[in-house]
Design a protein around this nucleic acid. Structure first.
Length: 460
RNA sequence: GGCCGGGUGGCAGAGUGGUUAUGCGGAGGACUGCAAAUCCUUAUACGUCGGUUCGAUUCCGGUCCUGGCCUCCA
């Protein structure tokens, strides 16, 4: 039984899908104008876990994650860099998909692009105008907030409160300062599409409404994203969609907490903007993934170098246990029950990781080879379920952390040196044995004399 | 001003009305030629003030501190 915290009701609820055979999940995807940062990564890793879990529980899951490839930030990036818009969006989209893969995320069922759904958006805007929820003004089309009595229900903002915030954009063509843009005119080199209101482009929110209804229907199960999207993005999506269809929009809203860096909000101006790309030079994708999952998704996550090291070491402990257990070629996965119930309890990944550590500990304590193999298989299966522990332990310990060439490694002739050292040990020439070990250690290779033989690993 | 969070041991971070989270790190021990890995033992804890209770870190209220949203943002 899956429990999830619904932003709409502010409480944990039992998840009951509209159709028990087919669950719909929509996650707000990236605006492709720059490399994905760690905050983005957190969203996609967390909801990748949700997608995996839903797929485990239900026969079919449609997971939609859009790509926003028309947006003023992209236009701005094009103007400042001199690169064409398509150049920027194509390169960034590709980089994004590579990053997602490095982090161990499963691809969504659909990754629709905004620019390929302009007709759907136009149609939706027309419907909103017909129904009296939107109006045209000076080439713009605006959503009339006062026409939706439930506006503000998601973010729990009363209309009056929004005015006191007094930071809404004042534009002469707005009937009410809180009204938001569905369509805006494009001039000059700015990309535009023909519409009943002239050449123009969509506002920010309409794409998600249009694409979610196309792929998941007018009412669907789960819509997720970062906490900062609750207002205005998701509030506005909900207003557009419900006013357009006269049906409920989303049944469960899920929002993850912020990622902060060394106690400060991540921003370009502070210079603490961490891209996935840069972090992958310091640590492998599974270490980043472990780090992102080590905090509950609704809590803020403070990313530090110490935390990264801790993730590295924790993962190392799990792999060490697996390495010391006999390998067993079991065909079917064996998921730990407590592990699954931790995940099913509103994605309690820190607790799930604790259970993996418990399994590792049991492996280390067990004196039965058979039991070790069974536990290790369960550890591997459970880890793989959340996209961790997918590698062979020897490979994991011995691979280069920075994906650099293996030439330096080959020059060391590690296996030969281990053999030479073991020969010296047999002859009780410990001075020579230690010399070899120290020599390897200096090169970043640590040795471990296990009962089964000498193992080596790279120091991370 | 409005709306939402959070305050747990050296650090990170779960959880629970009464019993060890876990990981990293520290101390001692076992094992080892010595290490490493592992195991055992151990220290350090629930912001603050009240209330409910036989008993609260856990429930309720006040208070202090702190983060976020209300404008583009995952």
């Amino acid at each position: 039984m899956l429990q999830i915290y619904n932003t709409l009701t502010h409480q944990k609820e039992t998840f009951l899908p509209l159709d028990a055979h087919h669950v719909g999940l929509y996650v707000c995807g990236p605006t492709v104008y720059d490399y994905a940062h760690l905050g983005n990564a957190r969203v996609y890793v967390i909801f990748d876990i949700l997608n995996r879990l839903l797929n485990y529980i239900y026969p079919t899951v449609t997971y939609v994650r859009n790509i926003t490839d028309i947006d003023d930030k992209i236009i701005q990036a094009s103007l400042t860099s001199g690169n064409s818009i398509s150049e920027i969006t194509e390169r960034t989209t590709q980089a994004f998909q590579e990053d997602m893969k490095s982090l161990g995320n499963v691809s969504p069922t659909y990754e629709p692009k905004a620019t390929e759904h302009i007709p759907e958006m136009i149609k939706m805007i027309q419907t909103l105008i017909e129904k009296g929820h939107a109006y045209e003004a000076e080439g713009h089309v605006l959503f009339q907030v006062t026409s939706d009595p439930s506006y503000g229900s998601l973010s729990r903002q009363g209309l009056e409160d929004m005015i006191s915030g007094a930071r809404v954009e004042i534009a002469p063509y707005k009937k009410d300062p809180r009204d938001f843009i569905l369509w805006k005119p494009s001039t000059g080199d700015i990309p535009g599409w023909q519409s009943p209101w002239g050449l123009g482009r969509p506002g920010w929110h309409i794409e998600c409404s249009a694409m979610s209804s196309k792929y998941l229907g007018e009412t669907f199960d789960i819509h997720a994203g970062g906490q900062d999207l609750i207002f205005p993005h998701h509030e506005n999506e909900q207003a557009q969609s419900t006013c357009c269809s006269n049906k409920p929009f989303v049944r469960y809203w899920m929002h993850n907490g912020y990622l902060i860096v060394n106690g400060e909000k991540m921003s370009k101006s502070l210079g603490n903007f961490l891209t996935v790309r840069d972090l992958l030079k310091k640590a492998s994708g599974d270490v980043l993934r472990y780090g992102l999952l080590s905090v509950h998704y609704r809590q803020p996550l403070d990313w530090t170098d110490a935390g990264l090291l801790q993730a590295q070491n924790s993962l190392c402990r799990l792999y060490t246990a697996m390495r010391h257990a006999p390998k067993e070629d079991a065909a079917s996965p064996d998921l730990n029950k407590e592990f699954l119930s931790a995940l099913a309890d509103d994605l309690n990944t820190p607790l799930a990781l604790h259970i993996l550590h418990g399994l590792a500990s049991d492996i280390n304590k067990s004196s039965s080879e058979k039991e070790k193999a069974v536990l290790a298989h369960q550890l591997k299966s459970s880890g793989a379920f959340i996209g961790l522990l997918t590698e062979d332990p020897d490979v994991w310990f011995q691979k280069s952390p920075k994906n650099c060439s293996e030439k330096a490694l080959e020059g060391l002739h590690i296996e030969c040196q281990i053999e030479a050292r073991n020969k010296a040990r047999q002859e009780r020439d410990f001075k020579e044995a230690d010399r070899i070990r120290d020599h390897l250690l200096e090169a970043g290779i640590a040795l471990e004399d296990a009962p089964s033989g000498t193992l080596w690993r790279r120091l991370k």
